[in-house]
Design a protein around this nucleic acid. Structure first.
Lengths: 157, 157
DNA sequence: GCAAGTTTTCAGAGATTATTGAACACTCAG
DNA sequence: CTGAGTGTTCAATAATCTCTGAAAACTTGC
């Protein structure tokens, strides 16, 4: 049984590494994947310190990033004064939804450039394609996430 | 006219900052946006050094990252021995397409965890949702990009 | 209201990463 | 083949970012 724990921890660390390569802070990613792969329903900050061998300050910082994005949540822990943290349901859909903010700022950047240079300029033509692309993606991505949520809840529901 | 240049450069830098916050290297992002917002059709490494105030080594490194991902391309420059670089058409679609590799590795990570813990475990249930989500996204994203390319080329074509 | 337990904050240490600058390699024209 | 003009590499430097550890601030049961 300890074998499994080791394998799960390894898989968690591997994913954390991938996520950190895509821009997420390393410790934040490690906290996230620790909660995702944990055999426990929820973990305390102390659990995370021990599991990941990091300080309580580091856990606090990671949690502070993860909660507002909707990836994890604090969960009431009857009979304990320690905060418990748990991976949120539909966290992935939330995470992808947050990406929409990025798509939106890409659209904005293109729009800004077009305003200055005009559509019929060298940069204008490039920016026009960019704006078209991100406008499209923003609309479609939102629809896609809704579609998944609906579909998944129906399957499980 | 110099006014416009300054505004374009500012917009380029702003976007580069956003991109670097999403995981792209800062210099790489700056080279990319410089080419995107440039009034010129293509730029030489020397142009980029001057515009961005960075060394030729830094430009070389950035270009080395950007070309394989399909964001920019080397373009033949008649009458000049210097390499010219240009922002590629449909670069955005390519960029987003590359993200599919990430979606795929997310699916893999979930799969790995399920293999160890089983679907009917605490982590198994979380990972099952994750796998479902990324499987869905991977399929749909690919379709979305194709749809955009088709649509865009029809509009312009 | 106090004290034990817990979380948060933050300055400084430490680790990591990116950039420079110079040496080396390559490419062509003559 | 030679050499001027470019591009690339890489060790050392500089800059950045992150974590720790300890102190401060909460929180809650008594």
């Amino acid at each position: 049984m300890d074998e499994k724990d080791a394998q799960l921890r390894e898989a968690a660390e591997k994913l954390a590494l991938t996520l950190s390569e895509s821009g997420m802070q390393k410790t934040t990613a490690r906290v996230m994947t620790a909660l995702l792969f944990s055999r426990q329903e929820a973990m305390t900050a102390a659990d995370l310190c021990e599991e990941l061998r990091i300080s309580s300050g580091a856990v606090s910082g990671a949690v502070k990033q993860l909660i507002p994005t909707g990836i994890i949540e604090r969960v009431p822990a009857p009979g304990s004064r320690r905060d418990h943290y748990r991976f949120r349901e539909h966290a992935w859909a939330t995470l992808m939804g947050n990406q929409n903010a990025l798509l939106s700022s890409m659209w904005d950047a293109a729009s800004e450039g077009i305003k200055v240079a005009g559509k019929d300029s060298t940069p204008g033509r490039r920016l026009d394609e960019m704006q078209h692309f991100y406008g499209f993606m923003q609309r479609e991505m939102a629809a896609l996430i809704d579609k998944w949520l609906e579909q998944y809840d129906t399957d499980k529901g």
